[in-house]
Design a protein around this nucleic acid. Structure first.
Lengths: 244, 244
DNA sequence: AGGAAAAGGTATGAACTCAGACCAAAAACG
DNA sequence: CGTTTTTGGTCTGAGTTCATACCTTTTCCT
C-alpha cells in the first residue's frame, strides 16, 4: 500500500535545518559582514537593540554573539550614549585559518560554491543592468569600484572586492539575490584567504570590474552577465587549481 | 573615531536569523516536500530516526513536526515494523489558501521570488546541460518530463511540474543550487495555487519542457538556459498579471 | 511458534532562547 | 551644571530544543 518515491529527489531536497544555537548564526552573520568589509575597521555597529531587531533574535542572544566577537578580537565595546561596538579587526589575517587542513566535506562545499556563484553572480549582474537605476545608486556602484581599484594593500583590496560584488547584488533590489550573493561571497572570501595573492590576478580582475560597471551603467544585461561569467570563471580556475 | 559605513550594504546584507522553533522549520520543509510532490500521495516518509538525522534535529522535535503534519491531515502514521508515516494529502486544494488576502509583504516576497527564479532556474538548467550525465540520470529527467506531460488532473500536473524542475536542479549535483530551486519552487507553488489554471498555459509550458529536455540531453547549456529563461518569463508574466 | 528487527511512543534533565523589566555609564542638551 | 537620552550590562521565569535512554507494537524470518 505504501510505495516509496523515486529516490533521487528526497535525497537532494531535504536539507539540515540550520539555526540551532541562534547565537551561532548571529556570530556567523556579523563576523561575515565584518570580514567582507560591510562594516570596515573603525565603523560602529548598530546598537544592540536595533541589531537584535534586525536579526530577529532576543537581545540576550545577540549579546552572547557580541561577547564572542569581542573575545575573538573583532570588535570593542564602550558604554553610554555615543558608545557602541566598534570594528577593530584588521582585514588581513585572522581567524578561519585555524582549521588548517581542509577536510573533504569542506572542499566539496567550496567547489559547490563556485558552481553556485557562477549561476548567481552573473544573474545578479544581468538583473542589476536591467533595472532602471537612480543616479545615486549608480554612484554607489562607481564608488565601490573606485575603492577596489584604489586599494593598496591586498587585505584591503580583498574587502573592497567583496563590497563591490555585494553592491552589484544590492542594485537588484532583490533580497533573495542579495542573500545568495552574500553567502557565496562569504565562502569565496574564506577560500581566497587560504591562497597567495598575485598582482597579475588583481589587475586582471580590476579590468573585468571596470567592464562590468560600464555594462551595468549602460543598461546592457547580456553583456553584464557575460562579463561576470568570465570573471567568475577566471577566479574559479585559479581557486580550483590551488585548493582543489 | 567611529565612522558609519555606507548605509546601503548593511541594510541589504543583514537578514533575520531563521530557525527559532526548529520544529517550524521541519514542518515547513516536510510540508513543502509533500506539496511539491517530492513525496507523492501514498508514499511513506523515511523513519523518524532517519528523518531526524537528515534534518539535524532531535527526534523529539521531529515528532512535534510530524504531529503537526498529522493534525493538518497531510500524513497518517502506523506503528510497528513495516509501519511508518504515509502521505495522505490530495495534491489539490488544501492549506495555504487560509491567508486569503495576500498582504503587501507577501506580495513583495512573491515578486522577489520571480526575479530570483529567473536567475536560478536558467542557471541550473545551463549547469545541468554542461554536466556529463550518466544514462540513468537522463532517464530520470525523461521520466519526470513524461509524468508532467501525462498528468491528467491539474493538481497532479502541478506536482509533476514541480518535480520536473527539481529534477533538473538535482542534475547539477550542486546542493546549494538544489536548495535555491526548492525554495523558489515552494513559493511558486503557493502562487500557482492561488490562480486559476488554463489549459493553454499548460500546453505551452509542456512544449517548453520538451525543448528543455532536448537541450539538456544534447548538452547545450546556452540553449537550455535560454529555453528556461523563456519559460520563467512566461510564467512570471502570467503571475504578475494575476497576483500583482 | 518464537525470537529478532523495525517502527512509533514516552520520559527526563540539561542547555538554549525569549521577552521584558530594570540598572549603570556616558555623552548630549538646555 | 543638571537633566535627558542613548547605550551597554544584568536578572528572571517561561517556553523550546536536545540527547538519551527505555517501552510498545507489529512484522519478518527461522
Amino acid at each position: 500500500m505504501s510505495t516509496t518515491p523515486a529516490p533521487h529527489l528526497p535525497e537532494a531536497v531535504l536539507r539540515p535545518v540550520r539555526g540551532h544555537h541562534a547565537f551561532e548564526s548571529c556570530v556567523e552573520q556579523l563576523a561575515t559582514a565584518i570580514r567582507l568589509g560591510v562594516y570596515p575597521r573603525g565603523t560602529t555597529l548598530p546598537a544592540e537593540r536595533e541589531l537584535a531587531e534586525r536579526l530577529q533574535v532576543s537581545r540576550a542572544t545577540l549579546r552572547e554573539a557580541m561577547a564572542a566577537l569581542r573575545q575573538a578580537g573583532l570588535v570593542e565595546t564602550t558604554r553610554g550614549r555615543g558608545g557602541g561596538t566598534v570594528v577593530t579587526l584588521k582585514p588581513g589575517l585572522p581567524a578561519a585559518r585555524a582549521a588548517a587542513r581542509t577536510s573533504t566535506a569542506r572542499r566539496q562545499s567550496w567547489l559547490d560554491s563556485l558552481d553556485f556563484r557562477r549561476i548567481v553572480e552573473p544573474g545578479a549582474a544581468a538583473l542589476a543592468a536591467s533595472r532602471d537605476l537612480a543616479p545615486d545608486r549608480l554612484a554607489q556602484l562607481e564608488e565601490a569600484h573606485a575603492e577596489v581599484a584604489s586599494a593598496s594593500k591586498p587585505a584591503e583590496h580583498r574587502q573592497a572586492d567583496s563590497r563591490f560584488h555585494l553592491t552589484v547584488a544590492a542594485l537588484t533590489d532583490s533580497p533573495r539575490t542579495v542573500e545568495a550573493v552574500t553567502s557565496v561571497q562569504a565562502t569565496l572570501h574564506e577560500m581566497l584567504l587560504a591562497i597567495p595573492v598575485l598582482g597579475t590576478n588583481i589587475a586582471h580582475s580590476d579590468r573585468q570590474h571596470a567592464r562590468l560597471v560600464r555594462a551595468i551603467v549602460a543598461g546592457k544585461p547580456d553583456l553584464a552577465r557575460r562579463v561576470m561569467e568570465e570573471h567568475c570563471d577566471d577566479t574559479a580556475a585559479l581557486l580550483r587549481g590551488l585548493v582543489g
